[in-house]
């Protein structure tokens, strides 16, 4: 191989390296532009839903594998969003929680404004041993309280996890039920009870 050819190959390789990130950034920008233009309002699902917050944009850009520093920064920010119940109580009614966990309804363009969103829990998690039609995207929560007990620390932890799962794992698949206004405080307490109440079918 002659020196000239080697030289030109080195230059080409260097150029390719230098150009790759620029191209990626251009494609990211172009994607955002296309998405903003090509989605429209339908029913309750308004076009503005494609506008990403900082967390959604970062998880998309890094395909859910954030650089550690950014991950820690975003998780701290998400943790600040969590509003704990003013009455200091975390446990609601597990029966209402089970109903909520079963419901996969809510917030699609075919749902009506008055439809109450469900918890969608069984879509991704195993919970009660009686329900065999459970999804497997998330971990099994069978015997969750039986294994961990139901002291105040774990109650608080579960409430926070439902309120904003991204506070403990920035690019988690799980929605931020409290932060995004999907579930009410009372509903989230019912889900805490479903997981932790000794009488709940999750722990039987």
């Amino acid at each position: 191989m002659n020196a000239k050819l080697m030289m030109s190959m080195t230059v080409t390789a260097a150029l390719a390296l230098a150009m790759a990130p620029v191209q990626a950034a251009d494609l990211d920008a172009k994607t955002a532009e296309i998405v903003k233009r090509d989605f429209r309002d339908k029913g309750i699902a308004k076009a503005t839903r494609v506008n990403q917050d900082e967390l959604q944009a970062a998880c998309s850009k890094y395909v859910d594998k954030l650089p550690p520093k950014l991950k820690a920064k975003l998780e701290a920010k998400e943790a600040e969003t969590i509003k704990f119940p003013a009455d200091g109580k975390f446990m609601g009614d597990w029966k209402a929680g089970e109903k909520l966990a079963q419901s996969g309804k809510g917030m699609t363009w075919s749902d009506k404004p008055e439809d109450v969103p469900g918890g969608n829990c069984y879509n991704c998690h195993q919970l009660s041993s009686k329900e065999i039609a459970y999804g497997t995207i998330g971990p099994s929560l069978l015997n969750f309280g039986k294994v961990r007990g139901n002291g105040e620390d774990i109650q608080r932890y579960v409430y926070a996890r439902i309120y904003n799962a991204k506070a403990s794992n920035a690019c988690a698949n799980m929605p931020r039920f409290g932060h995004m206004g999907i579930l009410t405080e009372a509903q989230m307490k019912d889900l805490v009870a479903l997981l932790l109440d000794p009488e709940s079918p999750v722990n039987k």
Binding site: V35, R49, L55, S60, N123, T136, N173, P175, R176, I182
Partner: peptide
């Protein structure tokens, strides 16, 4: 390339992308 980015584009009230459900082998919804 743009399609791949749309596949991974997380947004909306649930933070979902196509990849939330379709980037892991052997999982199911219900």
């Amino acid at each position: 390339e743009i399609g791949k980015r749309i596949f991974n584009y997380r947004a909306g009230p649930y933070d979902f992308a196509c990849s939330t459900c379709h980037a892991t082998t052997g999982v199911r919804i219900r």
